[in-house]
Amino acid sequence: MEIKNYDDIGELALDVIREVGSIGTGNAATAVSELLSANVRIKLPDVKIAGFNESMTMLGNPEEPVAAILVQMSGDMNGIMLFLLRMDFINAVLGTMLGKTVSDYTELDELEISALTEVGNIIISSYVNALSGLAGLDIDLSVPAISINMLGGILSVPMIELGYETNKIMIISGKFILNQQQLDSNLLMLPDIRSLNKLITKLVAGHE
């Protein structure tokens, strides 16, 4: 079944997307575990389809500062991967990699920012690699870009990118747990509708 709208996605397809997401996030968790030499797990991902304003509310306060790493997907899948991280995750990474912590985003220097970008890039690539392997899709990833700014402004980027074709976005998100402690971070995958169709066709068709 070809979908035209995110609302058309059936329960089965959503389950499959959730399942694929959990394999992707599992892979990402392993990557982070190795990087930080710590026990990292990811909660079972959530898949939500929501309007622009609603998805903003779901992810936090639009004015709160966050660090975000963005990678664009192209090839068999088009869309945006976004990794949002907040202070506790930043300090877990900086503490392990550079042996220091910061108390505010404005204290981050260039070296720290590039370390965070790299961690975000590793998490995103391992997620996408798991997904592309499973679905047999060839997905190219762009060079990562980072922005440290208000959450609302950051989320407007994928919304605008998808804005011509939809008034809703699909957010597949996972939360990291480091040494039993839940870290405030989200890994978001925002595919366009054509790509979502491909994914569903590849993964769900065999089950129906």
Partner: peptide
């Protein structure tokens, strides 16, 4: 005022829209 939204007020009050990025 949300994203892709518009509001009008008369005489008093404040209109606010949060975290405009590329919007």
């Amino acid at each position: 005022v949300g994203i892709a939204d518009m509001k009008i007020v008369r005489q008093e009050g404040t209109l606010i829209t949060y975290a405009l990025g590329s919007c």
